[in-house]
Lab assay of single mutants.
Amino acid sequence: QIFVKTLMGKTITLEVELSDTIDNVKAKIQDKEGIPPDQQRLIFAGKQLEDGRTLSDYNIQKESTLHLVL
């Protein structure tokens, strides 16, 4: 699992595989929060994550926290 922190300070827990693409992750956030993926920007280690890449491409591990910017 990974964590996604919103600017409102809310933390969302997502069940993911490290082979999941950023697209997949955004879809899971949409399922939980109702935010359309095209409005989501995910940040990790100061970098904006690109849709076609996977979590492992960015060296994101289990229990990592991503930041969601709208």
Score class of each variant (00 low, 15 high):
Gln61Thr: 12
Ser56Val: 09
Thr13Met: 06
Gln61Cys: 10
Arg53Phe: 05
Glu17Leu: 07
Thr54Glu: 09
Glu15Thr: 03
Val16Cys: 05
Thr6Met: 04
Val4Leu: 10
Gln30Phe: 06
Tyr58His: 11
Leu18Glu: 08
Lys28Phe: 10
Ser19Trp: 03
Arg41Ile: 13
Asp38Phe: 02
Val4Asp: 00
Lys32Asn: 10
Leu49Cys: 11
Leu18Met: 05
Asp23Glu: 03
Leu49Ala: 09
Ser64Asp: 15
Asp31Trp: 01
Val4Gly: 00
Val69Ile: 03
Ala45Leu: 14
Ser64Cys: 08
Leu70Pro: 11
Gln39Ile: 13
Ile2Gln: 00
Glu33Cys: 01
Pro36Cys: 04
Ile22Cys: 07
Lys10Asn: 05
Pro37Ser: 10
Leu18Pro: 07
Ile2Ala: 01
Arg53Gly: 12
Glu15Gln: 03
Glu63His: 08
Ala27Tyr: 05
Ile22His: 02
Asp20His: 06
Leu49Asn: 00
Asp31Ser: 05
Glu63Gly: 05
Leu42Arg: 00
Glu33Val: 02
Ile43Tyr: 15
Gln30Val: 11
Lys26Val: 11
Leu14Lys: 01
Leu49Ile: 13
Leu7Trp: 15
Ala27His: 08
Gln1Arg: 06
Asp31Phe: 05
Ile22Lys: 00
Leu18Arg: 03
Gly9Asn: 12
Gly46Pro: 02
Lys32Ala: 14
Ile29Val: 06
Lys62Ser: 12
Asp51Tyr: 02
Arg41Trp: 10
Phe44Ala: 14
Thr13Gly: 09
Val25Pro: 00
Thr21Met: 01
Ile2Gly: 00
Tyr58Thr: 06
Ser56Arg: 03
Lys10Leu: 03
Thr21Cys: 03
Val69Asp: 15
Asp20Gln: 06
Tyr58Asn: 14
Glu63Phe: 11
Pro37Lys: 14
Phe3Pro: 00
Val4Glu: 01
Leu18Lys: 06
Gln40Asn: 05
Ile29Trp: 00
Thr11Met: 14
Glu63Cys: 05
Leu42Phe: 11
Ile35Ala: 08
Leu70Thr: 10
Lys62His: 13
Ala45His: 11
Lys28Ser: 12
Lys62Gly: 13
Glu15Ala: 10
Leu66Phe: 11
Leu55Cys: 08
Lys32Gln: 06
Val25Tyr: 00
Thr11Asp: 13
Tyr58Phe: 12
Thr54Asp: 08
Pro36Gly: 02
Leu55Asn: 00
Glu33Asp: 04
Leu42Asp: 00
Val16Met: 03
Asp23Pro: 08
Arg53Met: 02
Val4Met: 03
Asn24Pro: 13
Val25Leu: 02
Leu66Asn: 15
Leu14Ala: 07
Lys5Pro: 00
Ala27Val: 09
Glu15His: 04
Ala45Pro: 03
Lys26His: 08
Glu33Met: 01
Ile2Val: 02
Gly9Ile: 01
Leu42Cys: 02
Asn24Thr: 05
Ile29Leu: 08
Gln61Asp: 14
Lys47Leu: 15
Gln1Val: 10
Asp23Ser: 05
Pro37Arg: 09
Val25Met: 13
Asn59Gly: 11
Thr54Trp: 04
Asp23Lys: 10
Ala27Pro: 08
Glu17Pro: 09
Lys26Leu: 15
Val69Lys: 15
Val4Asn: 00
Gln39Asp: 07
Phe44Ser: 12
Val4Cys: 08
Leu49Arg: 01
Gly34Phe: 04
Val25Asn: 00
Thr13Arg: 14
Ser19Leu: 07
Lys32Pro: 10
Ile43Asp: 15
Asn24Ser: 09
Leu55Trp: 04
Leu70Glu: 14
Asp23Ile: 06
Ser56Phe: 03
Glu63Ser: 09
Lys5Glu: 14
Arg41Val: 14
Lys10Tyr: 04
Gln39Leu: 07
